[in-house]
Structures are given as C-alpha cells and as structure tokens.
Amino acid sequence: MNSHSVVRVVTKLLMPFIFIYALYVQFHGDFGPGGGFQAGVIFASGFVLYTLVFGLENARRVAPAWLTRTALGLGVLIFAGTGIASMIYGGLYLDYSALAHDPHHGQHLGILIVELGVGITVAAAMISLFLVFAGQDKDD
C-alpha cells in the first residue's frame, strides 16, 4: 500500500480519532454505552488499520511482541489485582465499595480499573491475534 498516498493520508488523519474514541468508550463506559471490551476492540481495530496501510514491519516496531504479550497478561492481573486490593481494604473479593471511604467512589474506582484491565487484555489479544495471522504468509 506504499503507493496509495490518499489512503495513507486519510489513515493518518483517522488514527488519532479512532484511538481517542476508544479511550472515550473506555473511560465513559459508566455513563454511556461502552466499556472495556468494546474499547479494546476499537483500539485494536485502529491498530489493524495501521498495519494494513503501513505494513507489518512498522506495526511490529510500534507494538513489539513482548509489549502485546505483557499487556495481555497485565490486563487480567489488573482485574484480579483489583479484587485482591478490595480484600486488603477489608472487603470481599471484587467488592469495590471497600476501595474508597465512600462506597460510591469505591464502586466508581473499581469499575474504572476493572474495565481498564478488560480493555488492555482485549486490545492486546486482538492486536497479537491479527499480527500473528498477518505474519503467516511470510514463510511461503
């Protein structure tokens, strides 16, 4: 796709908006539709677009294998860690009310962190799936 300058320019223009939209869906999930899962997929789709237009080599430079793999596990750890944190603060596992003095704030905080964990894992999973798939045709 190196010769398609229109595609390249439009992609460059669109990328920030896709990522900002993903973050909006991520952190606005308590108020509107959306949440970690959708945000992760939107984030990954922005990345897929980048890979399609600018090639696998550039994409791997942005998201090397160690980064996506670390992020993959990190998301689950954030989720599970929130549960343990709420136990440390004296609540039950994944009982976010214990995270702050006010139960409402605790719930807000807990949901936000947990959704972040979901988002990180889903985005990393989708990105690494796509990159692994896209890297296949290299051997033949």
Binding site: D30, G32, G35, H104, H108, I111, V114, E115
Partner: peptide, 17 residues
C-alpha cells in the same frame, strides 16, 4: 448502590464481576 448511571456497566463490572 454504586452511583453509576449505566446499569449495564454496573451489572457487568460490579454485580457480575
């Protein structure tokens, strides 16, 4: 109970954590 307006998010992340 949670102060979060989107019930879907509440159920997903909190009640059904």
């Amino acid at each position: 109970e949670t102060g979060v307006p989107n019930i879907v998010t509440v159920v997903l992340a909190s009640y059904r954590g």
